[in-house]
Each structure stands twice: as structure tokens, then as C-alpha cells.
């Protein structure tokens, strides 16, 4: 064991790992928000509720249908995504010509309704969801005979899975033909439509994809945090701060800021625990003062 500024290494790396885990969830969730905001101009307040829904769908699949974690990892995002498509078609699509504020109010109201339904049905004490047996246990990481930290397998998996999903999303949006339609429609939907592209369909599918990401994050979170109707409301406020810091609508910004702020939060827990709950908001204020469009945002 060694110490860094008087902090024993397992404590330091343990908190950094925790920070990276939180950062993984910030990154996936803020990525979905950024994609949705870019194309739809909607600040999607239902995002936290749909993340919670992803975790609950995984729990329900297991307890009502006997469908385990790995299938749920694929099925729950699809179910949440389809739910999102219905929301977009039936409700959100009516607001595109109005001010942002209406979209925010509608999605905030929907979030409260969705949370309320789950709270009514399942209470607030939280439901257990076991780590899949393939990922139980953990690794002792050491350099020579010096122990560095203990890494639970499932937590390592969460970081890798989020990083892969974030990279894949970034790649599709920035480097493929499909992504070029998305970027162009984000800039000028009328013109893309005038070239013969079905932009309303693209918007619907983008919303579905964005919330499917939230559902995916929910399944990843289920074995770590207890499956709880309030889990979305707790995390979404921080995620909005992450999006503001990274810059609204910036894909890479959302990913890097998500992971980065998770780490900053972890470090704060080690060196000044009292500030760990507020550090992200302090950073948000500072960034807004210096770069109002966010670290990676393009100013309008």
C-alpha cells in the first residue's frame, strides 16, 4: 500500500473507480439528451424516468418472464425505445413549432407521471437485482506486491460497455452516411426535407434511439443501485449539469464531460468529501461564466 497526499491508494483508486462508474452513466445519459436536443430542440426531462424504466423493465423481465440480464440488456432498450417513439408521435411532435419551454414542461410532466406510476406499483424501498453470475466476483489489482485496488468484475463491465456504446454512437453520428443526415437535419431540417429525406421519421427514430440509450443505462445500473422509482430523478439533475458543461447538442462533449465529471466527483470525495455533492454544479457555474455555450458547444 502507498499513499497519495496522505490518502491510502485503495481508497483513492476505489473512489476514482466509483467516479468512473458514475461517469459512465452520466456519459450515456447526457449523450442521449444531446442527440435529442440537437435534432428535436427538446430538453428531454423524461430521460431520468426512462432510465428508471429501463431498470424496471429488466427487473420485470426477470421476475415475471424469467428472462435474465443479457437478454434484458438488449430487450429493455428496445421496449423503452418503442415507448419513446409512441410518446414522440402522440405528444412531443405537437410542440416543435413552439418555444423550448413547452417541450420542457411536457417532458417534465411525463417524467412525474411515469415515476408516479412506478412508485404507486412498487413503492420506494427499491427492488434487488442480482449481478449476473458471469460477472460476479472481482480482481485484485496490484503492481508487484503492492496492492492498488479491488475491481469488482461487474463495475469493470459497466465502464467497458458504456465506453463501447458511447464510441459506437459517436462513430455512427460523425463518420457514417446515416450520421451525415442527422447532422445536416440538426442544422437545417427544412433543406434536408427539400432534398427528399423523410425528416419527421428521422426525428421520431432519433428520439427512440436517445431514450433507448437511457433504457440501456438503466439495465446496466440495475445490479449496482437498487431498482427504485426515484433513481432517475436523482441522477438526471446531475446529468443536466453535465450537458450544460459539455455544451448542448455536442456529441463528443457529452461523452467526455460525462466521464470527466464522474472522475472529478470521485476525486472530490477523496480530498474534500463535503463538496462532492456540489462540485459539478460549481463547475457548471464557472463554465457558464467563462464559456456560456459549454466546453464543447458551438455558440449560436
Amino acid at each position: 500500500m502507498f499513499t497519495v497526499f496522505g490518502v491510502p491508494s485503495p481508497a483513492l483508486f476505489g473512489q476514482l473507480l466509483l467516479g468512473l462508474i458514475n461517469g459512465s452513466f452520466y456519459a450515456i445519459l447526457s449523450l442521449g439528451l444531446a442527440v435529442i436536443f440537437g435534432l428535436l430542440n427538446i430538453i428531454n426531462f423524461t430521460h431520468g424516468a426512462l432510465y428508471m424504466m429501463g431498470a424496471f423493465v429488466a427487473w420485470m423481465l426477470l421476475n415475471y418472464a424469467g428472462i435474465g440480464y443479457w437478454w434484458a440488456l438488449g430487450l429493455a432498450p428496445i421496449i423503452v425505445g418503442v415507448f419513446g417513439v409512441v410518446l414522440e408521435k402522440v405528444l412531443i411532435a405537437r410542440l416543435y413549432k413552439l418555444d423550448h419551454l413547452y417541450g420542457l414542461l411536457l417532458t417534465f410532466g411525463l417524467a412525474l407521471i411515469i415515476q408516479g406510476i412506478f412508485r404507486n406499483q412498487y413503492g420506494v424501498s427499491g427492488l434487488p437485482y442480482a449481478i449476473p453470475p458471469e460477472l460476479a466476483g472481482g480482481q485484485r489489482i496490484a503492481i508487484g506486491s503492492t496492492p492498488i485496488m479491488f475491481l469488482p468484475n461487474y463495475r469493470g463491465w459497466v465502464i467497458v460497455a458504456s465506453a463501447v456504446v458511447c464510441f459506437a454512437t459517436w462513430f455512427v453520428i460523425e463518420k457514417t452516411k446515416l450520421g451525415s443526415y442527422l447532422r445536416a437535419a440538426t442544422e437545417n431540417p427544412t433543406l434536408v426535407q427539400a432534398f427528399g429525406v423523410n425528416v419527421p421519421l428521422m426525428i421520431t427514430l432519433t428520439y427512440g434511439f436517445g431514450v433507448a440509450l437511457a433504457g440501456f443505462a438503466g439495465v446496466l445500473a440495475a445490479p449496482i443501485y437498487s431498482v427504485n422509482p426515484n433513481m432517475g430523478g436523482d441522477i438526471i439533475i446531475v446529468v443536466f449539469a453535465v450537458v450544460v458543461i459539455g455544451g448542448m447538442g455536442s456529441i463528443l462533449g457529452a461523452i467526455l464531460t460525462g466521464f470527466g465529471l464522474g472522475l472529478v466527483e470521485g476525486l472530490t470525495k477523496v480530498f474534500y468529501p463535503e463538496a462532492s455533492a456540489t462540485v459539478i454544479f460549481v463547475i457548471m457555474v464557472l463554465v457558464l461564466l467563462v464559456k456560456p455555450a459549454g466546453l464543447f458547444g458551438r455558440s449560436a
Binding site: T186, E187, N188, A194, G196, N198
Partner: peptide, 24 residues
């Protein structure tokens, strides 16, 4: 008709502001 269907009949449009996409 919606503009996407008009374009699909075989009409190409160059807007006055040119409409070049900066993120592409």
C-alpha cells in the same frame, strides 16, 4: 404535397443562402 415528396418527383433546389452544412 410535402417537400420531400416534391423533391422525389425530380426537382433539385439550390437555396439563395446556398445551405452548405457546416458540420459536414
Amino acid at each position: 404535397m410535402a417537400s420531400r415528396n416534391i423533391a422525389r418527383l425530380g426537382i433539385g433546389y439550390v437555396p439563395e443562402e446556398r445551405g452548405i452544412f457546416s458540420s459536414l
